[in-house]
Measured scan of single mutants.
Amino acid sequence: QSFTCPYCGKMGYTETSLQEHVTSEHAETSTEVICPICAALPGGDPNHVTDDFAAHLTLEHR
């Protein structure tokens, strides 16, 4: 399964590499985005909106 960065649209990330990408490239970004990992999880929330995606990844998807 691969994920797309909700900020810049780059594709092909794993859960881990998406977290690394967001932390390095978009750490200061506070735009509201939908978490693509939550959306892909069975029973996950397809509409989970977060305005601190880097922190959300760290808390929810480590």
Rank of each mutant, 00 (worst) to 15 (best):
A55N: 15
G44P: 10
M11D: 00
P46M: 11
V49F: 15
A27F: 11
S17M: 08
N47P: 15
Y7C: 12
G12A: 03
S2I: 05
C38T: 03
T16Y: 12
T23W: 05
I34L: 07
G43H: 11
T58V: 11
A39M: 04
V49K: 15
E60V: 13
P6W: 01
G44L: 07
T50G: 05
E20D: 08
Q19M: 00
V33D: 10
S24Y: 07
Y13Q: 10
T4F: 05
D45H: 10
G43C: 07
L41I: 14
L18A: 05
L18K: 06
P6R: 02
C8V: 00
E15A: 07
D51G: 15
D45P: 14
F3V: 05
S17A: 10
E20C: 05
T58S: 14
G44E: 13
E25I: 03
T29Y: 10
E15G: 06
Y13C: 12
T29E: 11
A54H: 07
A54G: 04
S24G: 10
L41F: 07
A55D: 06
A27T: 11
H56A: 01
L18E: 06
T31P: 03
E20R: 04
G9N: 12
E15F: 06
T16F: 10
P6M: 02
H56N: 04
L18R: 04
T31R: 09
A27D: 10
C35E: 03
N47H: 09
T16I: 09
A55I: 01
A40L: 07
L41M: 15
D45Q: 13
H56T: 01
P6G: 04
A54F: 02
L57N: 00
S17P: 10
E60C: 08
S30Y: 15
L57R: 03
A40I: 09
H26R: 03
H21A: 04
G9W: 08
E25C: 07
F3W: 01
C8W: 00
G43Y: 05
H26M: 05
N47I: 10
E20H: 06
G9D: 14
V33F: 02
T23H: 12
V49H: 12
P42V: 09
H21N: 08
S30Q: 12
T4A: 08
F53S: 04
E15L: 08
A40K: 08
T58A: 15
Q19R: 00
S17L: 13
P42W: 03
Y13V: 06
M11Y: 09
E25F: 06
C5V: 00
C38V: 04
T4I: 07
H61N: 02
C35G: 04
K10H: 03
S2H: 14
G9I: 04
V33Y: 00
E25R: 09
T58G: 07
P42C: 13
V22M: 03
H21C: 03
S17K: 14
S2M: 09
A27G: 10
E32H: 02
E60Y: 06
P36K: 03
I37C: 02
C5H: 03
H56K: 02
L41N: 15
F3L: 04
S17T: 15
V22T: 04
H56P: 01
I34P: 13
A55V: 09
I34S: 08
L57K: 02
C38R: 05
S17R: 10
H48I: 15
D52P: 02
D45F: 04
F3A: 01
T4P: 06
A54Y: 05
Y13P: 04
A55W: 03
L57A: 06
C5S: 00
G9R: 05
A40M: 04
M11Q: 11
A27L: 10
H61R: 01
L59A: 15
H26P: 03
E20Q: 12
T50E: 09
A40V: 09
V22S: 09
C8P: 00
T58K: 11
P6K: 00
S30G: 11
Y7L: 13
F53H: 08
S2F: 04
G44F: 09
R62D: 15
T58Q: 09
A39V: 03
T23D: 13
V33R: 02
A54L: 12
A39S: 12
Y7G: 06
